[in-house]
Amino acid sequence: MRLTWEEPYASDWEQLSPAVARRRLPVWDCTVGLVAGADAALMIDTGSTLREGAELRTQARGLLGGARVTHVALTHPHFDHVLGAAAFSGVEVYGAVGIDTVFERGRDELAADAVRHGVDRHAAGEAADLLVHPHHLVCGEWTLDLGGGTRVLLANVGPGHTGHDLAVLVPGTDGSPEIVFCGDLVEESGEPQSGPDALPTQWPHALDRLLELGGADALYVPGHGSVVNAAFVRAQRDALATRHGVS
C-alpha cells in the first residue's frame, strides 16, 4: 500500500510524510491519522458518528489506491474520537487497557455526551449501540508491522486527559521525522480540556512520556489543532504542572 494524493480526497488531508497523513475533522476540529505500510494501513481515531467514520473509510481507501484500512487505534474513549469505529468493519482495533470497560459501562454516557455537544440523538445512539470494543488492549507498548519496513509503536502513556490514553509513534525513515499522534493529551487550537475523567496530576507525566517517545525533533500531532513541535509540548506540560501543583 502507499498513499496517493489525487483528488477528490487529497485536499482534505495533510501529508506529514510519504506514509503518513492526517485530517482535521469539521465541527470539533478532531484529528484523525492514516499510516500506510506495504501490507496494511492504520487509521488513528474514527470520528464522532457512523456517517463520519464511513466518510473516513471511503477517503482512506481513495488515498490508499483502493486498499482498505486494516487496523484502527483509538487514542482515548471520547465520543469525537471513537463513535465512528463501527464503520470500519473487519479491522483489528487497538486501545489502552481499560478502554473496554469504559465502553461496556459508559456506552449511554458516550452517546449523551455526543448529544450535549450537538450530535443528532439518533446518530449518537446508533453509533453507541454499535460501538466496537478493541480486540487488542495495550498495557505498555505494542509494535504493529504494517509491512515494507513500516513499524508503528502504540504506547499506553496515560493516564492524563483520560484514564486510558494511547499514543501512536511512527518512526522516521528516509529523512522523514518521527511523528507522534498524541490524542487529546496535547491540544493546539485551545486550552487542554480537563473533563471528569481526567487525571490532572498525572497528565504532565504522560507528556513527559510523549517527549521521550518522539524526541526533540519529532512532529507532534495533537488531538485538536495544528501540528506542533517538542517545545510546544514541553510548554503545555509545564503549564499543566503549574496549574495542578505537579513538579
Rank of each mutant, 00 (worst) to 15 (best):
L50N: 13
T75V: 12
R23N: 04
A38M: 08
L64R: 09
L74P: 02
V27D: 12
T70H: 09
A40V: 00
T31S: 13
L64A: 06
P26R: 07
R68H: 15
T70D: 07
V69I: 06
V27A: 12
P77F: 00
V35C: 03
G66E: 02
L63S: 09
D29M: 07
R24Q: 11
I44E: 14
G53N: 09
A38Q: 12
R68P: 00
C30S: 15
R23H: 12
L42H: 08
L63P: 03
R68L: 15
A38F: 09
L56H: 14
T31P: 02
T75D: 13
G53M: 00
H71L: 01
R51V: 05
H76A: 11
S48D: 12
L56R: 14
R51K: 10
H71P: 02
E55A: 10
L63F: 13
T58I: 10
H76L: 09
G53K: 05
T75M: 14
R57Q: 12
A60K: 08
G62M: 05
P77Y: 01
R61N: 10
P26D: 04
I44Q: 14
L64T: 09
V27N: 08
V32F: 08
L25H: 04
P26Q: 05
D39L: 04
T46C: 04
G62E: 07
L74D: 06
G66P: 01
G62W: 09
T70Q: 07
T75E: 14
V27E: 12
R68D: 15
V35H: 06
A38T: 06
Q59W: 14
M43R: 09
A38R: 14
H71Y: 05
D39G: 00
A73T: 00
E55S: 10
D45K: 08
R23S: 09
A54Y: 14
R22K: 14
G53E: 04
R23C: 10
L74M: 11
R61V: 01
T31C: 13
V32E: 01
D45T: 07
V72Y: 03
D45R: 08
G33T: 04
T46M: 03
L64I: 02
M43E: 00
G66H: 05
G65K: 08
T49W: 04
L50R: 15
A73E: 06
C30W: 14
S48E: 12
R57T: 02
R24F: 02
R51D: 06
L42I: 07
P77V: 00
L63D: 05
G33Y: 02
T58G: 13
T46K: 00
L56V: 10
D39N: 06
S48R: 15
